[in-house]
Amino acid sequence: MENFHLEARQHTPFISFDPNTGIMEMKGRSTPENSVEYYAPVLEWLDNYLQSPCTQTVVSVQFEYFNTSSSKCILDVFKRFAQLHKTGKSVKINWYFEEEDEDMQEAGEDYSDILGVPFEVLVIS
């Protein structure tokens, strides 16, 4: 299975998913006008990953901005990992925020409340 890689742009995040190490990264901004379209290939890749996942998956997410239409899509990404967790695989999601950015901290806590998966909200040191 190929790595999934997208460079950051003005309205879309850097994404790097590695199926061999189980290290998944999302970073930057997610404010596209059409989030469903943008996230469709991301979710498709994850569906394939769920077929033959690593024994351990670590997800690191660090957003500067995301719009409400992305918030649903980001939840869908996390739900894929929650699904993996249910099958007994080790999954951990780390949500990073900058110390002053309370809105991003709250957003992480909101996701943590919704998802039944190990989810840590961490300040960037």
Partner: peptide
């Protein structure tokens, strides 16, 4: 905050992902 989470988790979204969360946000 609870309303936001409820719509985020259960709400329907439009073709572009607009989730009806804009004003709440």
């Amino acid at each position: 905050r609870e309303l936001y989470k409820r719509i985020l988790d259960n709400g329907q979204y439009g073709s572009k992902g607009n989730a009806g969360l804009g004003f709440i946000d």
